[in-house]
Design a protein around this nucleic acid. Structure first.
Lengths: 225, 225
DNA sequence: CGCACAGTCAACGCTAATGTGGAAAAATGG
DNA sequence: CCATTTTTCCACATTAGCGTTGACTGTGCG
């Protein structure tokens, strides 16, 4: 108990410690990178320590477990997303504008919070299988985000800007799918391309992929002979 | 070497053995279920053995490792999907019809191959990180599938049925996103609802979510005061 | 000067999972 | 009913990663 790393960690966490927090944050950052590269389960604390050119045991001075690192990573990203969504929902604007704003925010988020967003999305399924309080909270927040989208869709249906022949719930899932799946293929770098993705998704979701050529010039299947 | 379970397994695999293959298939089936429930990495051979009311060691008579179970699961599903896509691509029909067919096939596939499809999609990221031959092949097949979709999109663009102001590559990813993300929320059961999902996705991707009310009745953002 | 404290690290015990050896049990069939 | 093959399972060795101990190092402060 004299040395007790857990105790010293707790003390350091509470007693401010400017450089301590910085270092801890750095560790979380590197952990996110390693999780992104190897996947959470495959990554070991050794990998993270090695990347930081330090010893695995040293990490325990800053963080209690691999899970705790994940908590930190997810927290940093999830809170902002839900807050952004709440804010979009509350703001003035048409449902169409709100959807645009939400899509843009999410896609840019993949860039701004690299690689945290990727880790979060990839591990969501795993988190959903856990049953501890933290996992429940993450799922609840994620659900809240989904609800907000559904809400906007409903508002738009009510005011006539969205079609009413499709189940909103499924449409919302389609939208999530588009957005969240980016974690499987998008390689961040240029914010420009993120913007391009956001615009494409917006155009697709709102207006669809079928051609709407000026009447008379249509070549599609339904032209009259 | 006299007993050598590995050798006995290999022999049994080669020398036909009707009931052997049945039993093996049953094990794969149960493994897929367990992987679906716990996630591949978290699942243990013990879990699978327990579900089969047998001993973990017994499994080794049928299968060499947990990875091998995954191979089997993925193979059974991936081959069919690629074949179906190739067939759709080759068949007669407009690009619009081909997209419809592909979406429907994929979504129904989640039902027909439950839970194999779910395991495949969920584990794709993990597989992509491996560098062995098998992983490379899976990725190649998955890529092939993607290429086919892009090809159809390009055909449709060429004949004027699809719009040409969006990057096909991103549109294709959006479509994959919609489809593949279902593994995170869809609970199979009624094929009816799978069909509903397929229809919704098709409608969304082709025609978009914005209302196309008869002109004059629009309530959207751009109405003149 | 010395000592207290932040930070580091070699070393250990523990747990959980894997894959195998080898024999027991069940099925098959002469 | 015995002999042979197929199938099962107890028991073991091995491995990998986790979390902790307890002591070491350096730095700053009185």
């Amino acid at each position: 108990m004299a040395s007790g790393i857990a105790g010293r960690r707790k003390a350091a966490l509470e007693d401010g410690g400017e450089s301590y927090r910085t270092r801890r944050q750095e560790i979380v950052r590197v952990a996110a990178k390693v999780f992104r590269e190897k996947g959470f389960e495959a990554a070991t604390l050794n990998d993270i320590a090695a990347r930081l050119k330090t010893d695995r045991a040293s990490l325990y001075y800053y963080v209690g477990s691999k899970e705790e690192l994940l908590h930190e990573i997810v927290r940093q990203v999830l809170e902002e997303n839900v807050a952004a969504a709440e804010s979009v929902l509350a703001q003035a604007g048409t449902p169409v504008e709100k959807i645009e704003a939400l899509i843009e925010h999410m896609i840019l988020s993949f860039d701004r919070h690299y690689p945290h967003m990727f880790v979060y999305v990839e591990d969501l399924a795993r988190i959903a299988r856990q049953k501890n309080d933290w996992a429940r909270e993450v799922i609840a927040k994620t659900r809240r985000f989904e609800e907000i989208v559904v809400q906007i869709l409903e508002d738009g249906r009510a005011d006539g800007s969205f079609r009413s022949d499709l189940p909103n719930h499924i449409s919302a899932m389609a939208l999530f799918g588009m957005i969240n799946w980016t974690h499987r293929w998008y390689k961040p770098g240029s914010t420009g391309s993120a913007r391009e993705i956001a615009e494409t998704f917006t155009a697709l979701f709102l207006d669809g992929y079928r051609n709407r050529a000026p009447a008379g010039k249509r070549t599609g299947s339904r032209t009259t002979p």
